[in-house]
């Protein structure tokens, strides 16, 4: 009889068992992993129908491109991240659903994004600053970051005398403004009640200046000024409001005033990069699976036990 412990195989098996014990006692480590909680607010005003993005060599509208990018992004968000969805038009936004966990509700979120349509707009104006303020106020209590996707075209144009005051939300809001659209001004498509395109908005179709309140100009400079009947003068307004381009400087200013970041949506990759901003992430303690480490050592130890001999058992020949 000899001690089985003297055999290297026994030692290996013992160590392997020990490794498996470690595997079951310490299956993983709590590790900080970034997860995200976004509420996407998508501008569905008419100017978002402008087709100035290209995708697969085809012109697509701003709204289509936003939807496509969001669906791509959804696929890449880590589990435990949450996504909510809302729409903006007129002067405020509405929430379709509160943030949902992306892995368990992927199909639902994806379908809801794909169904967004400019015809869901309940009113036609596009007061972006007011909309942004109402969105930030609405979501102030939620811990979700606002991702406001718009082209920045105010319609009708703003009167600079009446600026939206963001002081109530500045500093509380977390989020980012994503500028959508090209920098070149292009005409806005016009649709009939059946959803068919019937041309583009012409110069005479849209107001080119604000006619609300008092003019910001010195009355003596305004031709045909009348304090009661013509506070903006008698001359026809000229402007390019029937064309639409991404108003980057305006959106950047809104960002500074409200304490949000600003990025332009050029392709899907830069959107992903902007949204992975650590400022928008929350670190969650997630259990990472480290069981492969002890399992691998057990496997190697076992292979050592059963490693075929390189030379056959030598017979000891005695003469």
């Amino acid at each position: 009889m000899s001690n089985p412990l003297k055999d290297y195989r026994t030692t290996c098996l013992l160590l392997a068992t020990l490794a498996m014990a470690v595997l079951f006692i310490h299956p993983g480590r709590q590790q900080k992993t970034p997860t995200y909680n976004y509420t996407f607010i998508i501008d569905i005003t008419r100017s978002m129908n402008v087709s100035d993005y290209r995708q697969d060599n085809q012109a697509v509208s701003r709204l289509e491109f936003v939807k496509h990018s969001l669906r791509e992004l959804l696929r890449q968000l880590p589990c435990q991240s949450r996504v909510g969805l809302g729409l903006f038009t007129e002067r405020r936004s509405t929430l379709l659903f509160e943030p949902l966990e992306v892995c368990s509700a992927y199909t639902e979120i994806d379908t809801a994004i794909s169904k967004i349509d400019w015809r869901m707009a309940w009113a036609a104006d596009s007061h972006i600053a007011k909309g942004l303020l109402s969105t930030l106020e609405m979501l102030q209590k939620s811990d979700s970051s606002v991702v406001f996707m718009t082209d920045g075209q105010e319609a009708p144009p703003l009167n600079p005398n009446y600026r939206t005051d963001f002081s109530t939300v500045k500093g509380h809001a977390k989020g980012i403004i994503i500028g959508v659209g090209g920098l070149q001004a292009v005409p806005i498509p016009k649709f009939d009640s059946q959803g068919k395109q019937t041309g583009f908005y012409a110069h005479d179709d849209v107001p080119h200046r604000s006619s609300f309140g008092q003019s910001n100009l010195d009355p003596s400079q305004i031709k045909g000024y009348n304090a009661r009947n013509a506070p903006f003068g008698s001359e026809a307004a000229i402007g390019n409001e029937h064309l639409s381009a991404l108003q980057e400087t305006y959106l950047e200013n809104l960002g500074t005033e409200s304490g949000l970041d600003y990025t332009r949506l050029t392709d899907f990759k830069n959107l992903g990069k902007a949204l992975r901003n650590p400022k928008l992430a929350t670190e969650k303690m997630l259990l990472t699976d480290n069981r492969w480490q002890p399992a691998l050592s057990a496997l190697l130890l076992l292979s050592l036990v059963y490693m075929p001999k390189l030379y056959p058992y030598r017979r000891v020949i005695r003469h």
């Binding site: 909510g84 405020r92 379709l96 659903f97 639902e108 809801a112 169904k115 869901m120 309940w122 009113a123």
Partner: peptide, 28 residues
């Protein structure tokens, strides 16, 4: 004034609850 598509037919009750909860935002 316009119809809104919110949530497709789903067995995910959490998603339906999230959609119902979102009606807490002011009406339009």
């Amino acid at each position: 004034t316009a119809p809104l598509f919110v949530m497709p037919l789903t067995e995910n009750k959490a998603a339906v609850q999230a959609a119902i909860a979102a009606t807490a935002t002011p009406a339009l």
